[in-house]
Structures are given as structure tokens and as C-alpha cells.
Computed example of a mutant assay.
Amino acid sequence: MHGLKGHTVCFTGRVLVDGVWTVRATCSKRAAQRGAVSKTDFSRKVTLVVYGDLASKAVTDDSRAYSSTLVDAEAERSCGRHVCVVDADGFSELLKGRPAPCLKLRKARAGRVRPVAAHTPEGGILGGPLRVRRTGQRLSGDLTLDLSALDRATTAHEATVGTLIAYLSRRGIEARAHAPGAPQFDAGWSCGQEVFVAEVKSLTGAHEEQQIRLGIGQLLDYTHQLRTAYPSTVVHPVLILERPPSVDRWVLLARSVGLRLTWAPDFAGL
């Protein structure tokens, strides 16, 4: 979709707008500045659903409002009336006057509906400039434990991201966020025709093995998705840690599965 003007919007919950959790009332005001009107509940007047809170995750509780909203949107599509659905990244782009991909909806078990990232054209891996996010606490009402989201909410994680941005900048490279519809890696950049996608893991106050294993798994998933979608693009996965790991075996393990493992502040091997 190309803009918010003329749309009637329904928000499923708070939305991560450019790294800041934003409640529905504020989202509605910002959408109004772009010519949209908002509804608190889904109806046949709604033409756009902004999927917040548990964006891009499978819905796990049918009693929550965002679950029924997606079910209603999918039902309208089945009847021939297309309702656009965007995630937090898409809404952030629309607020800037930029286009955003409309998400597909897929039925899951027990009548649940989940959003599926729309296919993006070749070159749609890297998004806009990467920014350090404000950190804060996750709401206690969230239903699933998203370890990656919890990590992004820590000061140590964002400090490492900031150090990476500065390191790349000194070398004339711009750190980029993921493009709408692309896997949600923490940082990306390009060198010539090659693209690097990175997952950043803080180790302060965390279980080191758990964090490193999580990062390796995420990168293997992201890289497989990207290489499948963009077979002509060379994609390099990079796991970036806040500090050196306590044991050397992680370096060998990462190398054996085709990952680059490095850490702040020197980022050796990048």
C-alpha cells in the first residue's frame, strides 16, 4: 500500500514505531496527520489493520482483541473486500509517507489467523538507517516470551548496537535496519553486491550459552529465508556479542556453520 490518506485504521495494540512502543491513542493521532481516521473496533468501515503488540508472531489467545481483528480481516478478504494489514515496520514507513507491504493472512489451527510477510522485490533486504532504540520494560500482559524482543529492550544490547553503528560509520559504511517484510535481523549493511545481516546479543545479566545459541539459530533462519528469496544476492550472517565469549568453542562452532562471530568494541573479522 502507498499511504494512509483515506484509510480507516484499526490498531490491534501498542505498536513499535521507529523503536518506541506507542499506544493506540498516539498511533491514531499520528495516522490522522497523514489523512487517516481510526476505529477502536473492527467493522466493515475498516480498510487497514495495523498489527501491533505481538507483530509477526502466531496468535496464542483467541480472546485477545488483536486475534479477533485478524480473524475478521481474513473473513472480509474471503468475501471479496480486501482489508490491508501492516506490521509495526510497515506503519512506521507509512507515517513517513513511504509505501509498505500488505501482509498476507494465513489460517492456523483452531481458526486462528496469523500474518505472513509479503514478498518484497529484489533488493528489499536492507531498510532505512539503523538507530539506537530507547530501552524500556515489556508489558506484563504479553502472552509469549520473546527472548529476542527482551534483549532489544536492554541497555547493554542497544549500547552494542551504537558501538557497531559508529564502527561501521568510521569505515564509510551505513548500518541499516531490515526492510519491511524482510526477516527482523538487528543490523545490516552492504559491501558492493554483498549483504551482511547481523544479530546482536548482550551478555550482561544473561545466560551466555542461551544468548549465543539463540543468536546462531536466528541467523541460520534469517539467512535461509534471504538466500531462498534472493538467490542472486550473497548474504553473510554475523553474530555480534557485547563482549568476548567465555569459552573459545563458540568461535569454532560459528565458523563450522558459516557464521562470522565477533564482539564489541573492536569487531575483529568484520
Rank of each mutant, 00 (worst) to 15 (best):
K57F: 07
R34P: 07
T47D: 12
T26E: 15
S43H: 11
Q33M: 11
S56H: 04
K57Q: 10
A36N: 05
V50T: 02
T40Q: 12
T40R: 12
C27D: 04
A31E: 03
T47C: 10
Y51V: 10
D53P: 01
G35H: 12
V46A: 13
L48Y: 07
T47K: 14
A36E: 07
A25D: 12
A32V: 01
S43N: 10
V50R: 00
V37E: 12
V46Q: 10
A32P: 05
T47I: 12
K29E: 14
F42W: 08
S43E: 13
S56Q: 05
D41V: 12
D53L: 14
A31V: 04
V49I: 13
D53V: 12
S43T: 15
Q33A: 15
V46T: 11
S28N: 02
K29M: 12
R44M: 11
R44T: 10
A25S: 15
T26M: 08
F42M: 15
S56C: 07
L48E: 03
L48T: 06
R44F: 08
Q33P: 03
A55Y: 09
V46Y: 02
G35C: 11
T26D: 13
R30L: 14
F42C: 01
F42Y: 09
K57C: 11
S38H: 05
A55Q: 14
T26I: 09
R34E: 14
L48Q: 08
L48S: 12
A55E: 10
K39Q: 15
A55M: 06
A55W: 01
C27R: 04
V49C: 10
K45E: 15
G52R: 00
A55T: 11
A31D: 01
K45C: 05
D53F: 11
V49G: 11
V37Y: 01
G35V: 09
V37P: 00
C27F: 10
A31S: 09
R30W: 15
T40Y: 06
A36I: 03
Q33D: 12
K45M: 10
F42H: 02
A31F: 12
K57M: 05
A25K: 10
D53C: 11
A32S: 08
S43A: 11
A32H: 05
V37W: 07
A36H: 02
D41W: 06
G52K: 00
T47F: 14
V50F: 06
R34H: 11
T47L: 05
K29S: 13
L54A: 14
D41P: 00
A25W: 01
A32D: 04
K29Q: 11
G35W: 08
V50Y: 03
K57W: 04
A36Y: 05
D41Y: 08
S43G: 15
D53Q: 13
V50W: 00
K39I: 00
S38P: 08
S38G: 09
L54F: 07
S28F: 06
S38V: 02
V46P: 13
S43L: 07
